[in-house]
Lab assay of single mutants.
Amino acid sequence: KFNKERVIAIGEIMRLPNLNSLQVVAFINSLRDDPSQSANLLAEAKKLNDAQAP
């Protein structure tokens, strides 16, 4: 279950337009470290993406 959620979360994070490459890598590394947190990490990535919108 967590592996599928992690793959989906990674794909979504990679498509967030307002994150820089270091932020994307940090979120992906966090997902690798704890796949059970996929939903929480994706939500945090989306919040950061929205906050950094031009």
Rank of each mutant, 00 (worst) to 15 (best):
V7N: 08
I8W: 11
Q23P: 00
S38E: 03
N40E: 11
A9L: 11
N18G: 03
G11L: 09
L41K: 10
V24G: 01
L22S: 14
E5L: 10
A45P: 00
I28R: 02
K47Q: 12
D34L: 05
S36D: 03
S38P: 04
S38D: 04
L22D: 10
A43T: 11
V25A: 13
L48E: 02
K47E: 11
A43D: 12
N40I: 12
L22E: 12
L48R: 04
L31Q: 01
Q52E: 02
R15H: 07
R6D: 15
N49M: 02
Q23H: 02
R6Q: 15
K4P: 15
N40P: 07
S30Q: 14
L19T: 00
P54K: 08
L22H: 14
I13W: 01
S36G: 07
A53D: 11
D33T: 14
N49D: 05
S38L: 11
Q52M: 11
N40F: 14
R15P: 01
A43I: 12
S21L: 14
R6I: 15
D34E: 09
P35Q: 08
N18R: 02
Q23F: 02
D50G: 08
E44L: 04
K1M: 12
P35I: 08
K46C: 05
F27V: 02
R15A: 11
K4T: 14
D34W: 08
I10A: 06
D50A: 13
E12R: 09
L19S: 01
V24K: 14
S30M: 14
Q37A: 13
L31Y: 03
A9Y: 09
I28K: 03
L41H: 04
N20S: 12
S21T: 15
P35E: 05
D33Q: 09
F27I: 05
N29M: 14
N3A: 06
V24D: 00
L41V: 14
E12I: 15
I8Y: 12
A51S: 11
L19K: 00
I8H: 12
L16F: 05
F27K: 00
N20Y: 06
E44F: 12
I13Y: 02
A51N: 07
L19F: 02
Q23A: 01
Q23I: 05
A53Y: 07
N20I: 05
S36P: 02
M14V: 06
F2K: 10
K46L: 08
P35W: 14
K47H: 09
A39G: 11
R32M: 15
I13S: 00
L48S: 02
D33E: 10
N3W: 15
